[in-house]
């Protein structure tokens, strides 16, 4: 036996698990802040309607245009609606749409990217050129175009997000495949006759996972922006559902009387986006190869 056994003081490491990742995220101030923000917004989305002091479309005619106060934390708008309650309610829609949309886009993009990148050849080449041309159109323009065709509906919004982000995620997934598929361990898998499914999902996917997680988080923040922007333009989530973008648009006309009605939802958007970005940056540092 060699003396290598004597240096065997290392404890066997586990792969990274959600809990480990979370603990590590809280190890750095910036990513801890980002993660906390995202968690708080998630909590808002989950229990917001329970803690909201007023109804989402509840108008209190006697209390229109009130500045922030202990009764109305974020003030009221020109119709006498409680801005804090509306912001709380709005979180659910935006997080659900952006989250689900991003998740589906990551799922579809990963599958397409992995398969196309691994197989290569003419199909891969053709698909990537199609994706390239889609990427050349600005996301907002593409969304406007699609919504113009299918009409403004929540499902349509979801489809738009999936459609806009799938090519981007696919390209990212594919680039990882291209760098990994010529590596020794993939060749070794081919040499022992592993199936294509095994190679793609067990040998290659884990290496792509950190990149895809970070990409997913970034896409999520862009999706939040996109939904808010579409809401602002009036073709996103339709009233009476509360929507931060729509709230900003409505408050714009009364910005001198009720600036808080504009600032609060706008602040919610930016804080959430900053939080997601900080978390994505943290994830990039935290997701390491097991044992490292």
């Amino acid at each position: 036996m060699t003396k290598e056994s004597t240096t065997a003081g290392v404890t066997p490491a586990r792969g990274w698990r959600p809990f480990t990742v979370l603990t590590r995220l809280f190890g750095r101030p910036a990513s801890a802040a980002g993660t906390s923000i995202v968690l708080i917004f998630l909590l808002m989305a989950l229990i917001g309607p329970l803690i909201a002091p007023y109804g989402v479309n509840e108008q209190i005619p006697s209390e229109t245009r009130q500045a922030p106060s202990p009764d109305h934390w974020f003030g009221t708008d020109h119709l006498g609606r409680d801005v804090f309650s509306r912001v709380l309610f709005g979180a659910r829609d935006i997080l659900l749409l952006a989250g689900l949309g991003t998740f589906l886009a990551v799922l579809a993009g990963t599958a397409i990217g992995l398969l196309s990148g691994y197989r290569g050849g003419t199909f891969d080449e053709a698909l990537m050129r199609v994706f390239d041309s889609l990427l050349a159109i600005p996301a907002l323009l593409l969304a406007l175009l699609l919504l113009g065709v299918v009409g403004p509906a929540r499902n349509a919004l979801l489809i738009v997000i999936v459609f806009v982000y799938t090519p981007i995620v696919a390209r990212v997934a594919r680039s990882v495949v291209l760098s990994v598929k010529s590596k020794g361990f993939v060749q070794a898998a081919r040499m022992r006759g592993e199936s294509e499914t095994w190679i793609i999902f067990r040998e290659i996917l884990p290496s792509a996972f950190p990149t895809l997680t970070v990409e997913g988080a970034l896409r999520f923040s862009y999706a939040i922006f996109l939904i808010a922007a579409l809401g602002f333009l009036g073709i996103g989530v339709q009233p009476p559902n509360p929507n931060w973008g729509l709230m900003v648009a409505e408050a714009r006309e009364h910005v001198f009387q009720t600036p808080w009605a504009l600032w609060m939802p706008a602040l919610a958007i930016s804080v959430l986006v900053i939080g997601v970005n900080l978390m994505a940056d943290g994830l990039r540092r935290v997701l390491r190869v097991p044992g490292a």
Partner: peptide, 10 residues
């Protein structure tokens, strides 16, 4: 050739 790429890190 490259032992660092020979084994799947995961």
């Amino acid at each position: 050739q490259n032992p660092d790429e020979a084994l799947n890190p995961y």
